[in-house]
Computed example of a mutant assay.
Amino acid sequence: MADVRPPAVILAGGLARRMGGGDKPLRSITGRPLLAHVIERLQPQCGALALNANGDPSRFGRFALPVIADTVHGFPGPLAGVLAAMEWAATAQPDAHHVLTVPGDCPFLPRDLVPRLDQARRAENADIAVAASAGHLHPVIALWPIALRDALRTALIDEDIHKVEHFTARYPRAVVEWLITPYDPFFNANTPEDVTEAERIAVGDQ
């Protein structure tokens, strides 16, 4: 049976080196943090919702969401966040079979992200469904089987697998393409210039 509203985890733990450090998701566009835009897009599509971030969780206190740290130490990167998401989802929403992950700096996520990923996963009998746009995969914007958490932990700890694509290549994967007009829904704010562009897009989208 398909998940109606699967749990979701926003990966908010990047180091934002191109931003000069700090938490990228807390940078503002249209007077609100990027993270607030991400949450607004996700909440109608998901069940339980949490943030994945390391360090002091109180900096995200205003969002009133659980903050889960990586459960594998010394393995920085998105796969550690995906593992934390799987392990949290198994407890937070025990009846769910999949968990969605997205980055915390993508303020224009599609409002049909979950249903399209889930539909493709079922139609193609795939384990994982991944978003794409303009011919580019967005590996951490994906619907993951929670049952893969032990396999992912083994890949991280015992096999030194760090790249998302190296892990997903082991499983049947559905890729779902989105149009990039009037803008790429997976636009992410990596630099100060990106934040300026996000502001422009957001104003035009209101």
Rank of each mutant, 00 (worst) to 15 (best):
6 P>N: 05
7 P>G: 07
10 I>H: 09
11 L>Y: 09
12 A>F: 06
13 G>R: 12
13 G>D: 15
14 G>A: 13
15 L>K: 11
15 L>V: 11
15 L>E: 12
16 A>R: 02
16 A>D: 08
17 R>I: 15
18 R>M: 14
19 M>P: 01
19 M>R: 09
21 G>F: 03
22 G>S: 11
22 G>P: 02
23 D>I: 07
26 L>K: 09
27 R>T: 08
27 R>E: 12
29 I>C: 11
31 G>F: 13
31 G>L: 14
33 P>W: 09
37 H>C: 05
38 V>I: 06
39 I>K: 00
41 R>M: 09
41 R>Q: 14
43 Q>I: 07
45 Q>V: 12
46 C>M: 12
48 A>D: 11
50 A>E: 06
51 L>C: 02
55 G>V: 08
55 G>M: 05
56 D>F: 10
56 D>M: 08
56 D>P: 11
57 P>L: 00
60 F>R: 02
67 V>E: 03
71 T>M: 03
71 T>D: 12
75 F>Y: 05
75 F>Q: 04
76 P>E: 04
76 P>L: 03
77 G>M: 02
82 V>W: 02
83 L>A: 03
84 A>S: 15
84 A>K: 09
85 A>Y: 06
86 M>Y: 03
86 M>Q: 15
89 A>Y: 03
89 A>K: 02
93 Q>M: 10
97 H>G: 15
97 H>V: 04
100 L>G: 00
101 T>F: 07
102 V>T: 07
105 D>Y: 01
107 P>C: 14
108 F>L: 13
110 P>N: 13
112 D>M: 08
113 L>D: 13
113 L>R: 12
113 L>M: 12
114 V>W: 04
115 P>W: 02
117 L>H: 14
119 Q>H: 15
119 Q>R: 15
119 Q>A: 15
120 A>Q: 10
120 A>K: 11
120 A>W: 06
120 A>N: 08
120 A>L: 06
124 E>T: 03
124 E>L: 08
126 A>H: 01
127 D>Q: 08
127 D>I: 00
128 I>E: 01
129 A>R: 01
131 A>E: 06
132 A>N: 00
132 A>V: 00
136 H>C: 09
137 L>S: 06
140 V>P: 13
141 I>G: 10
144 W>A: 06
145 P>A: 08
145 P>G: 05
146 I>M: 13
150 D>W: 00
153 R>H: 13
153 R>E: 15
154 T>M: 04
154 T>A: 13
158 D>G: 01
160 D>Q: 11
162 H>M: 11
163 K>S: 12
164 V>I: 15
167 F>Q: 11
168 T>Q: 15
170 R>T: 06
170 R>M: 07
170 R>I: 05
170 R>E: 08
173 R>F: 00
175 V>N: 05
177 E>N: 10
179 L>A: 14
181 T>F: 02
182 P>M: 08
184 D>M: 08
184 D>N: 15
187 F>P: 01
188 N>D: 14
189 A>W: 04
189 A>I: 10
190 N>E: 15
190 N>F: 09
193 E>G: 11
194 D>N: 15
195 V>Q: 02
196 T>P: 00
201 I>K: 04
204 G>Q: 05
205 D>T: 10
205 D>Q: 14
205 D>P: 00
